[in-house]
Design a binder for these strands. Sequence first.
DNA 1: TCCATATTTCCAGTATATTCGAAATATGAG
DNA 2: CTCATATTTCGAATATACTGGAAATATGGA
Lengths: 110, 110
Amino acid sequence: MEVKSAVTSLAALAHEGRLAAFRLLVQAGGEGLAAGELARRLEMLPNTLSANLNILANAGLVVSQRDGRSIVYRAQYDAMRDLLGFLVEDCCGGSPEICAPLFKTVNDCC
Amino acid sequence: MEVKSAVTSLAALAHEGRLAAFRLLVQAGGEGLAAGELARRLEMLPNTLSANLNILANAGLVVSQRDGRSIVYRAQYDAMRDLLGFLVEDCCGGSPEICAPLFKTVNDCC
DNA sequence: TCCATATTTCCAGTATATTCGAAATATGAG
DNA sequence: CTCATATTTCGAATATACTGGAAATATGGA
């Protein structure tokens, strides 16, 4: 992952509303959620949410697909993994010892 | 880690210059680097870098300590680990299968 | 076709971020 | 004490981001 791509992804997530939307989509799994359902759950105006989903999509963190009158958004797990990998790669360049606790974090969560 | 804290950290890293500074500090290890040395390596004006280091420090990602005429900055590995943990925790809430490849990423790097 | 629903696009106002020059502060050397 | 070095703080200009209202687009149903 390139630096510019990482910055774009980090910036997309560095916003309370977008981070919340992304988390909901991640938790929703492969089925995804319709834009309207997200707006309802996050209590955001549809147009504001749309703009924010667009930013997430632009960063490659989510994808959208029309389903009838709704547009369903799904998290892109690969993109998230790439971003985490980029940060981890960064961390280990100089200090492998930081990875032990991170390793533990990953273990604990699964 | 709270959402607001995560957003602050993500925003701090979502800037090419700051991300580069943070990476250098991470690679520099516990010794850290003086502000001037960072400015030289990153080819940034000292005052611009200072403002950016301040943003990183505010997010808790780096700490500073005076050493003679220089001010030495060091990466805060704990903060980075917390941020990664927050993102991982998020990811695993709904989809444990995403952790397998992440697990592999962490393994590969150490 | 006509209408309601779902979502996006456009636009303008406001807020926040970024940068740089200039001045201020802190330290150590002579 | 005076000076050079290292860094920060201040202030203003510019750029970018965020939000919400209004209008536009797309879809499916009556």
